[in-house]
Design a protein around this nucleic acid. Structure first.
Lengths: 207, 207
DNA sequence: AACAAACCGTACTGTTGGTAGGGTTTTTGG
DNA sequence: CCAAAAACCCTACCAACAGTACGGTTTGTT
């Protein structure tokens, strides 16, 4: 049971760090800044995280976990709304677009991409978490695509694994656009375009 | 005529900076590191760039310019190979995928995304360059899509501007995947998937 | 030769990440 | 309630880095 006071402080550190990192990037977020926000001394901070890399690791892990929860929620609900695997996936994508429309900064992709771009700076452990998250998303989406493909023979010759990766890619790319233009809707737009492609692949473009 | 010795040194600084920034991110690239690579003293470096932000600006500007050149080259050549606007675009996408397949790190998207993620750290000037680049890509791709749409009535109800942005998004997302998995081919794959979507939009999915 | 551009040298400031180690308060289990 | 462990605080320090300041020297151009 990790419900002591320390766990709560640790979480407050992670919350403060998340805000700053998503706003300014990891390197531009200082320990002193986070420590002040939480109301700790430097020693207090270092009691919870031995160094900044350790903080990055915890931050990324938490993000990935939260992400899995969100995906579970959305696609489970979509599956409830429609028994057909393809249409459940399409409904899930619409729900996903809605969910991401307001808060692109809250999406884990931000954190994953932020880490992917920092690259060499981080140790192997963190890079593995990153890669692992992308791989788990691939498996998740691929399973749904394969289920859809069984009932609907694809009308476009695509590699389903790449098509699965395309959703991750669309989210990462959509986040870049959203941040550059400072308009969150771009992320939702890209997810919906992906949805149209999936629809075209399995259902064709017939009116 | 900017062909003096200073301009050459300046370029050597930019070249060295590019390598480090793409490998480790901007914040993790030190002036001292670049200076040593070029064989300068710190004073010598600061003679060419008054501070690190000025270097970032020059780096981004050069990247965007180089990018425009590459796009010009590829899509001009594609237009030569086929008079039809749609097929010229599709050919261009294939050439683009080939060109990006080997060297995803060389793509400006890396730099643009790196800046987009750093965000607040940079001044408005740099953010504007970034946004301007994405806007110019949008216009470029949109023009080709509109030309295609005139001859081929879209079979999928898509906003052409968003479809234009989707290519930028696919490249940015593809770069994230390529870097995370350390396999350059992901970028090419995502461009080719985008190509298949464009084909489906204008030509349909009929065999 | 004159002048400016392209550097070098040195010394210094402030911020940040991180180390070291002892001290104090708070929480918790027996 | 009491002892031990957890959760902090305090002070001092180091090294890396960005940036300032400013005078001096070399190199290229005309």
């Amino acid at each position: 049971m990790e419900s002591g006071k320390g766990a709560k402080t640790r979480q407050r550190i992670l919350d403060a760090a998340r805000v700053s990192v998503l706003a300014k990037g990891f390197s531009n977020t200082t320990i002193d800044e986070i420590r002040a926000e939480v109301g700790l001394t430097k020693s207090g901070f270092l009691y919870h995280f031995e160094d900044k890399t350790s903080l990055a690791k915890a931050l990324l892990n938490q993000y990935v976990a939260e992400d899995d929860r969100i995906f579970d929620e959305i696609f489970d609900r979509a599956a409830q709304l429609n028994d057909d695997p393809l249409h459940a996936f399409l409904i899930g994508l619409k729900l996903l677009a809605e969910a991401m429309g307001d808060l692109p900064n809250a999406h884990p992709g931000c954190m994953v991409a932020a880490v992917a771009y920092h690259d060499k700076q981080f140790n192997h452990e963190i890079r593995d978490i990153n890669r692992g998250a992308l791989l788990s998303w691939r498996e998740r989406f691929l399973a749904m695509l394969e289920a859809a493909a069984e009932r609907y023979p694809p009308k476009v010759d695509v590699d389903l694994q790449k098509l699965a990766d395309m959703l991750s890619s669309a989210m990462e790319g959509g986040i870049v656009l959203s941040r550059a233009f400072d308009t969150p809707s771009h992320l939702a737009d890209q997810i919906l375009l992906y949805r149209q492609f999936v629809s075209a692949v399995f259902l064709g473009t017939r009116d």
